[in-house]
């Protein structure tokens, strides 16, 4: 899978938040097979060492990081956070979140497009967290995004794919764009479904971190993503309403 100019083999991206412990996070990352984890920036206490301890642990995992702008509600906040993240994490990648509604964490499409344009022009490789809206997606591509990350459902809900029609339409409308379903995935079957629809990858966090066995769930998601991708490539049959016998009718005995 191509993410800007980087080739990765795993189609599962994993968040690093909400795990019971750093050791469980590390175990989950290993079992997921992911090559990319998301990270954030937060305030450090004077004399504190939380940031350095976390960063050292992530570096030991040997994976790439995708910093986010989580919690940003304005273009300015998001752009400033992106610049700070680029310096700290040493990457041009940014998972761009410009949130428009605090209850649903629905992206603000207007702010998102504006911030994406500013950052793309400044050399960032932007991974915008967006909805499945076609027009917004097109505008994000117009301003320089080469990857889009539509939500499956609101962050942390685990509801799966709320608008399968919209996601399918997005996939069909932008066949050449790397599309990653980000947020709302609760079960491996949700991830498999998205991959069967032709999405390129899945980004999730809570479903693994909040599972009773995060490492086990990470493994389950890895298998689901792989299965869904294989199914997509194998060209699934079209569903139909009426039954159609799979066993040949011709040659059936007459037994009265």
């Amino acid at each position: 899978m191509q993410l800007y100019d980087t080739e990765v083999s795993s189609r599962l991206l994993l968040g690093t938040a909400l795990y019971p412990s750093p050791a469980i996070l590390a175990d989950a990352v290993k079992h997921s097979g992911t090559q990319i984890v998301t990270v954030s920036l937060r305030r450090e206490a004077a004399g504190g060492n939380s940031g350095q301890a976390f960063w050292s642990m992530v570096q030991e995992l040997g994976v790439r990081v995708l910093p986010n702008t989580a919690g940003c509600f304005s273009v300015k906040e998001a752009v400033t956070t992106a610049h700070m993240a680029r310096e700290v994490f040493g990457t041009n990648w940014i998972k761009l979140e410009v949130i428009g509604d605090s209850e649903t964490l629905c992206p603000d499409p207007f702010g998102l497009v504006e911030a994406a344009g500013i950052l793309a022009a400044d050399g960032f490789e932007v991974f915008p967290y967006c909805t499945e809206d076609l027009v917004t997606a097109g505008k994000l591509l117009d301003v320089g995004c080469r990857v889009l990350m539509p939500w499956g459902a609101p962050i942390g809900t685990g509801l799966g794919l709320n608008n399968t029609y919209g996601l399918r339409t997005l996939r069909a409308h932008f066949p050449e764009t790397t599309l990653i379903v980000d947020a709302g995935i609760g079960l491996p079957s949700h991830a498999a479904r998205a991959m069967e629809l032709g999405f390129d990858a899945i980004l999730l966090n809570t479903a693994v971190a909040r599972a009773g066995d995060p490492a086990g769930m990470a493994r389950a998601f890895a298998l689901a993503v792989e299965a869904g991708r294989a199914a997509y490539l194998a060209d699934p049959m079209e569903p139909r309403d009426m039954a159609s016998p799979s066993t040949p009718v011709f040659g059936k005995a007459v037994l009265r």
Binding site: G15, T16, A17, L18, Y19, L25, T38, V39, S40, L41, R42, R43, E44, G48, S50, G51, Q52, F54, W55, V58, P67, N68, A70, H83, M84, E87, V88, F89, I155, G156, A183, N205, T206
Partner: peptide, 25 residues
């Protein structure tokens, strides 16, 4: 930016943010 810190002066009432890596989704 880091390389501009030495040339940046603070004044009374300024608001400074110091951010470090954290877990994120």
């Amino acid at each position: 930016p880091r390389n501009a810190r030495a040339g940046t002066s603070l004044a009374c009432g300024d608001e400074l943010e110091v951010l470090t890596p954290r877990q994120g989704g």
